[in-house]
Design a protein around this nucleic acid. Structure first.
Lengths: 241, 241
DNA sequence: GAGTGGTCTAGACCACCAA
DNA sequence: TGGTGGTCTAGACCACTCT
């Protein structure tokens, strides 16, 4: 037993996939679909909502329901750099520092940094833009002892603002040379704040990256929340023959 | 101006996040919420549907609307292996071979393998299980000339079924030692077939991995479509001082 | 059988956009 | 101004689960 709205959704989905309604075009208006299928308005809306939540269309008030363009940055392949390299692919590389401050870390950060529960960390939030839209929300945590080591070695106060050079250089000067990073990727739907900030239409998930950089022990951890329709992330890893 | 269903959704979301409705518990039934907010049934349903599409709850007929447990395998951190290593984290490692056959590749595969448009490839589909559920759909393509090289060197016919040893070993025997892999990760909502196969509730995206393994040139490419509520993927990369 | 969510109707009013 | 999608109602019937 199938239901009316599922039939309508399937029909529309098929026509989107076979090119009858190409990206950027509009599917028939709600009243039109009501006539065509002889159903009530909300039945049509159920079908269209479903397609929106699958990421296929975006309904726009006063305009119509437009077919989304499904060929984002995603899956762009790059025969790549010589050695181990990771690359985040977004267009504009603009980076805005939102905040830098001492903070008490939550459980996950404590675990990843292997620090005592009540120690302080420098917490940074940055937004990375792709054009005028936020494509990624970055949060970074650097433990107490690393901040101190950097300050002693380089006269840089991490909690005061953006450093003059990148963190890797500072770590090397502080005799905490980064030896490896582990990045763990997962995905989920955005919460309303994230959806709002990144202007995500319904049906667009976020790509989550949790990074830990280690020297002897962990020296830094970050989380990245990236807009699923504008992000992909590549890793190139050499294989030991 | 906010709407009724958004208010209800926000209220429920807040109570889920503050622990009033912990994971596994049920939010109030629809008729209850109708009374509490003095709205019609469909208004409540709009609110609940929204939460379902955010991945927070799963409505179950005859049961109630249960709060989802949001601490999957995801974000499990592992201080890791010595060198460059990539790990897919799922529970059961069960692997089911669905099909193996010669095929004509599509555009993306042609690009990644750097082969002529009409050449043949061996195409494999596998399902990886986590318990009784499919957690990942794997597709693999190996180009003509690599299949031939392996057959000549090792007497293994890749198109005939699962090989006795892993592909990396076969490649080494065929004098095509794998030198590097590039994996590109992205995310999107599942299509209905994928949702059905992996038993994904609404609001669960999929994690997409596109891999290319290179020796001198590309020798293999794969795509992985993983259930977002049961998958994460880790990369550990050494840093050159 | 009682309670749950799922589907559907017919009609209404609102917010937004283009011409 | 006319057409679009967004919200909401009051009521109905269905499918499913538990006891």
């Amino acid at each position: 037993m199938t239901t009316r709205w599922k039939e309508i959704a399937r029909s529309l989905r098929d026509r989107i996939e076979d090119g009858t309604y190409p990206p950027g075009s509009k599917i028939p208006a709600i009243p039109e679909l009501m006539d065509e299928w002889d159903v009530a308005r909300d039945t049509v809306r159920d079908a269209v909502s479903r397609l929106a939540n699958e990421g296929l269309v975006t309904p726009r008030r006063g305009i119509g329901t437009v077919v989304r363009d499904i060929t984002p940055v995603a899956l762009a392949y790059r025969p790549d750099r010589p050695a181990a390299v990771w690359t985040t692919q977004t267009e504009g590389g603009l980076d805005e520092l939102i905040s830098t401050e001492w903070a008490t870390p939550d459980r996950g950060v404590i675990d990843r940094l292997e620090i005592p529960p009540n120690s302080q960390v420098v917490h940074r939030v940055r937004h990375q833009y792709s054009g005028k839209q936020v494509a990624q929300i970055m949060e970074q945590w650097v433990p107490d002892h690393v901040v101190t080591a950097i300050a002693n070695a380089t006269d840089v106060d991490l909690s005061a603002g953006p450093p003059a050079t990148d963190l890797h250089s500072l770590l090397r000067h502080a005799k905490l040379p980064p030896a490896s990073t582990t990045e763990t990727l997962s995905t989920r739907m955005p919460d309303p704040d994230e959806a709002d900030l990144m202007e995500l239409p319904p049906g667009v998930p976020v790509l989550i990256t949790v990074r830990v950089t280690r020297s002897d022990g962990p020296v830094e951890t970050s989380t990245f929340v990236g807009a699923g329709d504008r992000m992909s992330q590549s890793f190139t890893v050499p294989l030991g023959g």
